[in-house]
Design a binder for these strands. Structure first.
Lengths: 125, 125, 125, 125
DNA sequence: GTGGTCTAGACCACA
DNA sequence: GTGGTCTAGACCACC
């Protein structure tokens, strides 16, 4: 998996790494139980501080998307289906980004088309 | 329009204000040419400093969502339809949030339903 | 002479009026001794407060570009040739605007061409 | 690079700082990728508040003249050549300042000489 | 170390 | 009335 990191972006580097792993899992480029590169390895590859990668991995573990296996290092966790509706903060964030898109005068149909385009790129269960 | 601000959130207050105005416009609670409360008024109402509100308004002006009329104060701008596809950063953000939702094992149909639910809440042109 | 005023611009209205009169004189649309509309007349025409026009006229008088004639109202002053080099603040402002243009990666030739284009639009003595 | 700031001028301090950096870049005193003093450092040096410098830097970032690298601080951006003619507002500002100079009865040749003098002071690509 | 955010209160310019 | 600017000092996030 390739990472594209910008050190000049206003988005913290650790979050860029975390975000790209999230998208990688959603797209099936990273599969459950698949092993990730070690902190040092990835830090070298991207050219950032170990702490930065460590922080990204830790957040992903907290979120339940990664797990640490004593023998194998860090790997992708199994999806745990969440009962009920979307967590409120995800729902809010989705509302916000859709609102921003709407304010660029993109109409509803176009937005739905973009959403479907993105979703078809994701893995099937 | 009501504002719900958390001073303990890690999200800067000025951004919370800015986000809620964006959603307010998208939902039609704030209509083009409608006047917003003055910087001082809103700052008092929410209980924050003038500069915090000022920063939120300024960002919204930079983004083209608000306009300040020297005679009348600050009001909602007209939408300017943007030709072409979604700006890449909005598309990326949309991808990211959909990926996060997908990782909660929500299936595609449920996601599309949520999107439609949000979109029907927005104003019609 | 026509005025184009924006009440939503970040530039104060009185300055927009003042600036357009300056350009009008430079282009010869307003000639020495020519009478300007009265404060009230212009204020009505543009749709702004009398005070705003008054402030513009007063600044122009202070700068020596307009003079008040008791019988005829406000009219355009004669140019008074200034000995020596440019006043330092005008030189600085010229430097600044040329720097901004340069920073848009416009090359020297193009800038000189624009300057000549503007200058040929001005009146000849 | 030296800054000359007047705290009594009617021009906001943050704008004086911003303007001098723009001119500094145009003159080649500040070169692409060159690092600027930190917000605190410059604020101390000039004797103003951090936020004042921060505002100047932020505006320059918005304008694309500076870039903040999370690892290295703030540096001068690469020039991005803009295709096409001058942006209308820059053209208007250039017209205005030339008109003001013309109204001081400076003749066309003298103005062109000043412009060339300023331009030769700028960096060569 | 870096920049980002925020406060409480002040003064100014504009209309 | 409106928004814009500024201070002095604080705390936080990031690297």
């Amino acid at each position: 998996m390739l990472f594209e990191i910008s050190t000049t972006s206003e988005i913290p580097i650790y979050k860029q790494v975390r975000d790209q792993i999230v998208i990688g899992i959603a797209k099936g480029q990273l599969k459950p139980d698949e092993q990730l590169p070690s902190v040092r390895q990835l830090a070298d590859e991207i050219g950032v501080n170990n702490m930065t990668i460590s922080k990204a991995y830790n957040q992903l573990k907290d979120e339940g998307f990664l797990i640490t296996d004593r023998r194998l290092g860090t790997k992708v966790a199994q999806l745990k289906p969440q009962p009920g509706p979307l967590p409120p903060d995800l729902f809010f964030q989705l509302t916000l980004i859709l609102a921003e898109i709407r304010l660029h005068a993109v109409n509803t149909e176009q937005i739905e088309k973009s959403v479907q385009q993105i979703l078809t790129d994701f893995f099937e269960e």
